[in-house]
Nucleic acid binder design. Structure first.
Lengths: 236, 236
DNA sequence: GAAGCATATTCATCGGGTCAATTGGAGTCT
DNA sequence: AGACTCCAATTGACCCGATGAATATGCTTC
């Protein structure tokens, strides 16, 4: 095993063993390199790898710190994986999302605060205004879509679940989906599905929320793979 | 944005744009550093970050290559996240696994080859021999457990789904679970659940497979959180 | 043609250096 | 006292050059 990998594992182990706690500051590069018996450049490469894993964080002029190590942080490297496969197999990522998101939405039905339900309605209102315009800003639509879903799933009570869902459709995938919706009818259908989910949450009805979420993601999946949709949106 | 981050993004973008394809060799460090306008050490830190993301791979004396970029590779960094939270919130990871694994097991019921069904039976036979011994080798049990589940989920037809499930219970979590099973009855129950899943797969019955997988993961979850199990294993 | 061998190529690691951002305290003003 | 400005120390960011180790490649030999 190389020296750098050894340094990476040593630091990792120090964290697992609790010698380094979340938020704690590491020794300065020079000292830490000396303690690990490696050159400063080598240590820097090890630190860089741990930064990529969201385990460490550096601030020039200040020092190197252990991150919060929260699941959502550690899992958010997955987004790049989804982005890379946007051309080939985005369907596989969406399939996972279709399994998880209905469950998370159902769980959120009984947990999401009233204030955030109001906020969800505002997001949808804004999306409708955008769709009504002649020149549709797809970038804003993508952002609103992401906010809508992440606001819901973030209240499912399971940070890991929320993080995995979030990363199963990276920004590139979302952008591709919405850009592909040139048909005004497709945009309207998506909005109706969002409203249906919103109504189910307002009713605090997990089963309705689960079904509408499942149908929604399925619709997105089918619009991407080009397979025929069956029946369009439901209206409850 | 720092110089290193810029170099990382540039290489990433080259991959997304298809200028760098899976398996392709990168220019030598000296040339690539010059082309990106950074020092060699700086480029190495960028490359090291991409290695941590499983995007690049280096071989001393040969060169630096783009990996296969397969989803299972890009997603396997999650395992560390699960391991770090083994003490605090392993339950959240297991919950995600409980949502996904039943689905994957059901999907595998109609896809797994006969030969692998035989192999599954052999794994279970071996596990039973281990459990029958006086001095139980928990390490081998963990390995057999991992082989059993990954052999099934790898045939679910969705590499992303399989990879996510695999990473939702890292090796540390699995080891902790099996080490906690000091009660012989708990071991027996787990084995019975495995056999039940096996029988459902042999019958090519997705729904039975789904239910037994769900019950099994739930049992694991409850044994870890210490909540009371309800009724023990079913026998179909 | 196959096997060994020498050599070039390439990444791994090291040690040093300068630059830039942040911090914390000394000193000053209100 | 309290807030503010300013400066120096600290610390990571980034660069340069050099040596070592692993691999590939072309050559030699049989």
């Amino acid at each position: 095993m190389g020296v750098i990998e050894g340094a990476i594992d040593t630091i990792k182990q120090m964290i697992i063993d609790g010698k380094l706690r979340p938020g704690q500051k590491l020794p300065v590069e020079k000292d830490l390199a000396e303690r690990l018996g490696v050159a400063r450049n080598t240590l820097r490469e090890a630190v860089r790898a741990l930064i990529a894993m969201r385990v460490l964080q550096t601030r020039q002029g200040d020092g190197t710190y252990v991150t919060s190590l929260s699941p959502d942080l550690l899992l958010d490297g997955m987004g790049f994986a989804a982005d890379i496969h946007v051309a080939a197999g985005a369907g596989q990522f969406l399939h996972v999302r279709r399994i998880l998101e209905p469950e998370a939405t159902a769980m959120a039905a009984t947990r999401i605060p009233d204030a955030d339900l109001v906020r969800l309605g505002e997001l949808l209102d804004e999306a409708e205004r955008l769709v009504a315009e002649s020149e549709i800003d797809h970038g804003k639509l993508v952002a609103l879509d992401e906010d809508f879903h992440s606001l819901i799933t973030s209240h499912c009570g399971n940070a890991v679940l929320a993080a995995v869902i979030q990363n199963m459709s990276g920004r590139t995938v979302r952008a591709r989906i919405w850009r592909g919706m040139t048909d005004p009818e497709a945009l309207q259908r998506t909005l109706r599905e969002h409203w249906a989910i919103h109504r189910a949450l307002l009713a605090r009805d997990p089963e309705r929320a689960r079904l509408h979420a499942a149908l929604h993601v399925l619709g997105v999946e089918e619009s991407l793979t080009g397979s025929p949709t069956f029946g369009g949106a439901v209206d409850d």
